[in-house]
Simulated assay, not measured.
Amino acid sequence: MTGAKTWITCLLLILLFIWMGSASRPGEVVLWTGKFIFLISVLTLIISFVTPWISSFRRSRKSHMGLSVPEGDMEQQQKLVRIEQQEQLKQKASYYVENIMKPREESRLKRKMEHFYRMTGQSWKLTEGHMLGDGEGHDSLNNCDATDKAAETPNNEALRKRKLPEQATKPIPKLEPPPPKKIITLPEEPNEPGEGVISVALRCPSGRVFRRRFYKSCCSLVLQDWMMKLGYHSVFYALYTSSPRCQVELKTELSIENIGIIKDTLLNIEQNYS
């Protein structure tokens, strides 16, 4: 407000001097205008520097007159103000943590747990469930005496209230003993070839060949037992003739001679695709 009044006064003075110069000597209007502009700038500069000094002088005078607070009391007041500000900041921080940060973290953790349970197939953990034995056994509880209730342990009470599913109460059936493991035994091998004796060779898938002599009267399943003893199970492998290639049918009632092996023969062990 003071600056506005100063500028208005300066403008009025400039107009006054310009009017006076134009009335007396119109040629000196420009000169007077420059002089007053310079005067106004000097006055503005002086006012801008003097005003802060005057205000500071007034404040120091008031403090010397006894309006200021003693230094010790001032420090105590500043300390109390700082403590109060710290308490306010702590309250704001605790309010932010309790009402914003913690609910946000809990909701984030809950979403992660729900996603984890759904991905691992444990979504039943997200349900509230129900209490086992709730509402069961009220009639038996009413018939019990007070002494029995007092003497009953919590474990017995829970056992009495519990109602297990039928699968849990059903007696476990006795398992039949497994069948005895078959022990493969081959008949004695004839020492020398002769009548009623043939030599059979088995060619393995690896290319290795095994030879053995049998009596023609032996059961044809002896060849299968020999193959299994070499490490080739009859479920996955079978015996085939070389030429013509055909599968050898092994039966209990047939002997080696009955299945067509009447001389020294080479059989191939091959995978059974049938």
Rank of each mutant, 00 (worst) to 15 (best):
T6E: 15
C10I: 09
I14R: 07
L15E: 15
S24K: 09
E28F: 09
V30E: 11
L31I: 04
K35T: 01
V42T: 15
T51Y: 09
P52D: 05
R59Q: 05
K62Y: 05
K62E: 15
M65E: 15
V69S: 12
M74E: 09
Q77H: 05
K79D: 13
L80P: 12
I83L: 11
Q85N: 09
Q88L: 11
K90W: 07
Q91A: 08
K92N: 12
E106L: 03
R108A: 13
L109C: 03
H115V: 06
Q122F: 00
T127I: 08
D134V: 01
D134K: 02
D134R: 03
L141D: 10
N142H: 08
A146H: 04
D148F: 01
A158H: 00
K161H: 07
K163S: 13
L164A: 08
P165T: 07
K174E: 06
L175F: 04
P177K: 06
P178K: 14
L186Y: 06
L186P: 11
E192I: 04
E195D: 09
R213D: 02
F214K: 06
Y215D: 13
S217K: 07
C219A: 14
C219R: 14
M228S: 15
H233K: 10
S234K: 08
F236D: 15
A238Y: 00
S242K: 10
P244F: 02
P244W: 03
E249A: 07
E253Y: 03
L266M: 14
L267T: 13
N268M: 08
Q271A: 09
